[in-house]
């Protein structure tokens, strides 16, 4: 199923990648139940929220969780065969075209050969297809996913003259960060209204501290301080600070601290300098850092 390269990395075919270990995810609200119900009903899901808020982690966690109950024991062989949920993630960029998703002809020794794109594969095997930062992609790709997201659940492949019916397990999940995209790159309503939306905000301080403590392995107190820093730095929404600091950055800071980097320095490299290039704003954040950490 997975080849091991000499370096020890695992190479998966895209549709064969499943989440093996339970990813750490701390539910903040009812998002897990919501997603499960949506999956049961095959309602596509839109994850909204700033970067580093845990959207991708959530999808991974849900893929693992949805795969988990399907662990079956084969009646014949008695072998345990985990039926895991495949997860196909596509990071969208501004040059991502429809054919990058659906597939294209490649040249072969004897002519051309059709190769399915990641979306087609997901549709065929019934995977969760996660289109990360979907607004970044070209508009034609968003139109492409329309028939997949309503009752039809079809993927037309124009070049082959085919229409693929989605396998039962297929679900489309997209993510979207309303913060930094300009008005030009807003998600179209015709697309948007095909999904239920789950919002990912910044987690409350206590929970964020718990996440940081778990992910970075720092003490509860340090995690609390980091979460406090996060809360404070998110307050001024101006001067290029519109994004605030992500939990991910706070975890990075935590990891550095855990490994012995002095707290102020760790916060400087992972929070202050990551957030902004404006010297004055950096200084202000720096002051918050030095107020919180000794």
């Amino acid at each position: 199923m997975a080849d091991s390269t000499p370096a020890g990395a695992f190479i998966h075919a895209v549709e064969e990648y499943t989440v093996q270990q339970e990813p750490y995810y701390l539910p903040i609200g009812d998002e897990v139940q919501l997603f499960e119900t949506a999956y049961e009903q095959r309602i596509p899901v839109l994850l909204k929220g700033p970067t580093g808020a845990g959207k991708t982690r959530f999808v991974e966690y849900m893929a693992w969780r949805l795969g988990h109950p399907f662990t079956r024991i084969s009646a014949r062989t008695g072998e345990e065969a985990e039926h895991r949920k495949p997860l196909i993630t596509v990071a969208c960029h501004e040059d991502l075209t429809a054919s990058d998703l659906v597939g294209r002809y490649l040249l072969d020794t004897d002519g051309t050969r059709w190769v399915d794109g990641p979306l087609t594969r997901a549709v065929k095997i019934g995977a969760i297809c996660y289109l990360d930062e979907v607004v970044e992609a070209r508009k034609d790709t968003t139109v492409l996913i329309h028939p997949l997201t309503d009752y039809r659940r079809l993927l037309p492949i124009e070049k082959l003259g085919q229409v693929v019916e989605a396998a039962d397990g297929f679900l489309l999940v997209i993510s979207y960060n309303p913060g930094y995209q300009s008005a030009l790159k807003d998600l179209k309503h015709s697309t948007r209204q095909r999904f239920i939306s789950i919002e990912f905000g910044d987690p409350p301080k206590d929970q964020e501290a718990e996440i940081i403590a778990h992910e970075a392995g720092v003490t509860r107190d340090t995690a609390m301080d980091l979460a406090k820093l996060g809360e404070k730095v998110r307050n001024p929404r101006e001067h290029g600070l519109s994004e605030g600091v992500s939990t991910r950055l706070l975890i990075y800071a935590g990891r550095l601290i855990h490994r012995g980097v002095p707290a102020r320095r760790a916060c400087q490299v992972s929070v202050t300098w990551s957030l902004t290039d404006d010297a004055e704003v950096q200084r202000s954040i720096e002051e918050v850092v030095t107020s919180i950490f000794e």
Partner: peptide, 11 residues
Amino acid sequence: ILRLYCKALTG
């Protein structure tokens, strides 16, 4: 600098 700092602290 202090304005942003206080803004951060107080929200």
